[in-house]
């Protein structure tokens, strides 16, 4: 009994912590979708770009004799700069000229952006698998007194969880306290009214893409440490999709909770349903969950109800 409970806790905790990473990617989608109504297909590619910029500059600086801590700071700054340049270019050459266009047009344009970012990132920084070691990758064994063998908790996941928490608190403060944050919320609610009080849409779009780029950078540090920085990171974007459907496309808390539900749900399903139906559940469970939510509550758990007058 106690062993079964210990195992359940272990699966749950590892699922929740893995879910935090889904939340991080989903968060980038939500930020851009809220402020501009654009579903940004390129979010996964941005995680790849941020990760490559980080790991390659880090390797370069360490190879040139910089102490590790200084190299990390410099590499993070460099990657942040790359994300800022990306945000500027996307606003200037893609979204700026397409202002007031249909949502589908904007979505298509972000597919184009995806290919350019993916190609550009690999051209500039290489296309191998690059190991990133920012956090310790071993594990703790907790509560060894209560459970035989203790609970195995991976340190990377805990780091990821803490970083995500800091990020979310930082974003919340930014949205609530600053003039730019208030302007972002204003644009999310009503473009015309926001412009009429002196908010520049171009500036705001640059800011949201920058913030989404920085969120992608944070996601890249954690995913990169876990799996190495490699092209398959872009498929993360696909995992964020069910997270968004479950949490709601317009809700920051929704992205967080949705990520946790998907993370915990797929690990628990794998552990407890897997043996009965042949395993491999992890890969499709999130989509089934999303389908159920779509049928019961199409706007997602935290999304705004869309009411249309006929």
């Amino acid at each position: 009994m106690i062993i079964a409970f210990g195992q359940f806790l272990e699966v749950l905790v590892s699922g929740l912590l893995a879910g935090v990473l889904y939340s991080l990617v989903a968060l980038g989608f939500v930020l851009i979708f809220k402020a501009s109504g654009v579903f940004n297909f390129a979010q996964g590619a941005m995680v790849l770009l941020a990760g490559l910029a980080l790991v390659r500059s880090l390797d370069f600086l360490v190879a040139n004799g910089l102490p590790f801590w200084a190299a990390i700071i410099a590499a993070l700054l460099f990657a942040a700069l790359i994300m800022a340049i990306t945000a500027f270019l996307v606003e200037r050459f893609v979204l700026g000229p397409l202002i007031n266009q249909d949502g589908l047009t904007l979505f298509m344009s972000t597919i184009g952006v995806t290919f350019i970012i993916e190609g550009g990132a690999q051209m500039l920084f290489g296309s191998d698998v690059y190991p990133l070691r920012l956090f310790p990758s071993d594990a703790w064994f907790l509560f060894e007194g209560s459970f035989p063998g203790g609970l195995l908790v991976s340190k990377i996941d805990v780091w990821g969880g803490m970083i995500a928490a800091v990020l979310v608190v930082g974003l919340a403060v930014f949205f609530q306290q600053t003039k730019t944050g208030r302007a972002l919320r204003a644009v999310a609610d009503d473009h015309a009214a926001a412009q009429s009080v002196g908010i520049s849409l171009n500036w705001i779009w640059f800011i949201v893409w920058l913030v989404a780029g920085l969120v992608a950078l944070v996601a890249a540090t954690v995913w990169g440490t876990k799996l190495g920085v490699q092209f398959s990171i872009v498929f993360l974007a696909l995992k964020a999709l069910p997270v968004l459907i479950i949490g709601g496309f317009t809700s920051v808390p929704g992205a967080i909770v949705g990520g946790l539900i998907v993370g915990a749900g797929e690990k628990l399903a794998e552990a407890y349903l897997g043996p009965f139906i042949g395993g491999g559940i992890e890969y499709w469970f999130a989509y089934v969950l999303a389908l159920v939510v779509l049928m019961a509550r199409p706007q997602g758990l935290f999304g705004e109800r869309i009411i249309e007058r006929i």
Partner: peptide
């Protein structure tokens, strides 16, 4: 009416002050 529906009346009116606020974002945070 084009208000910022997600905000309180106070925040809506504060949004009208956007252009008049000049301080650095980090201090504001």
């Amino acid at each position: 009416v084009a208000l910022f529906r997600g905000m309180s009346a106070l925040d809506n009116i504060m949004a009208g002050r956007t252009l008049k606020m000049k301080r650095n974002m980090f201090w504001q945070m």
